[in-house]
Amino acid sequence: MKEERKCLTCGEVLFGRADKKFCNDNCRGIYNNKKNKMGDDYFRKVNSILRKNRRILEEMNPKEKSKTTKEKLLLNGFNFYYYTNVYQTKQGKVYYFVYEHGYLELDNEEYALVRKLDYI
């Protein structure tokens, strides 16, 4: 006797093809959304922080170059742990970038803000 196959989402008995897993498109969509949601939450949180960091750098650097303090960045909600890439100059200076907007730590908790459009 054949084992009864059931929908992976709602548990209804399946009829038709031997490899069928869902009773309809709605159940298939619910299953896949739930399966993908676990990983998506992490990416969504990281992307949200990166977008916020980029927006802060963009607002604080309306020109190509400017300066600010660590305190001002933190007061605006900047998170120094999240950036998209790092660029080290021949002189050993390290720029941290959030997409095309970057910052370089200077003396006395000051930061140089830059925008590098050739990253796009």
Rank of each mutant, 00 (worst) to 15 (best):
M1N: 13
M1Q: 11
K2W: 04
E3N: 14
E4M: 14
E4V: 14
E4G: 05
E4L: 14
R5P: 00
C7P: 10
C10H: 11
G11A: 06
E12W: 04
F15L: 11
F15K: 15
G16D: 01
G16W: 07
R17D: 10
R17E: 13
D19Y: 02
K20E: 01
K21M: 09
N24H: 01
C27Y: 03
C27S: 06
C27M: 04
C27I: 06
R28N: 05
R28Y: 02
G29Q: 12
G29H: 11
I30K: 14
I30H: 07
Y31G: 03
Y31T: 02
N32S: 03
N32C: 00
K35E: 02
K37I: 00
M38W: 02
M38K: 11
D41P: 00
D41I: 14
F43T: 10
R44K: 14
K45G: 00
V46E: 10
N47F: 03
N47Y: 12
N47T: 06
N47G: 14
N47Q: 08
S48A: 08
S48G: 12
L50Y: 00
L50H: 04
L50M: 03
L50P: 04
R51Q: 09
N53F: 01
R55Q: 08
I56A: 02
I56N: 03
L57Q: 07
L57N: 09
E58T: 05
E59W: 01
E59F: 01
N61I: 00
P62M: 05
K63D: 09
E64F: 01
K65C: 03
K65L: 11
S66L: 01
S66Q: 03
K67W: 00
K67Q: 08
T69A: 02
K70M: 12
K70Y: 10
K70F: 05
E71Q: 12
E71R: 15
K72E: 14
L74F: 04
L74S: 11
L75S: 13
L75N: 15
L75F: 09
N76M: 06
F78Y: 15
N79M: 12
Y81A: 15
Y81W: 10
Y83L: 11
T84R: 11
T84N: 13
N85C: 11
V86Y: 08
V86N: 12
Q88D: 07
Q88A: 13
Q88I: 13
T89I: 07
T89R: 13
K90F: 13
Q91S: 15
G92D: 10
G92S: 08
G92P: 07
K93A: 10
K93F: 08
K93R: 10
V94I: 15
V94R: 12
Y95V: 05
Y95Q: 09
F97N: 08
F97W: 09
V98T: 13
V98A: 06
V98W: 00
Y99L: 11
H101C: 05
G102Y: 00
Y103E: 05
L104G: 07
L104T: 04
E105S: 09
E105A: 13
E105D: 07
L106W: 05
L106G: 04
D107C: 03
D107L: 10
N108R: 12
E109A: 12
E109K: 14
E109V: 01
E110D: 06
L113A: 10
L113P: 06
L113T: 07
L113Y: 05
V114Q: 10
V114L: 11
L117M: 08
L117N: 07
I120E: 04
I120P: 00
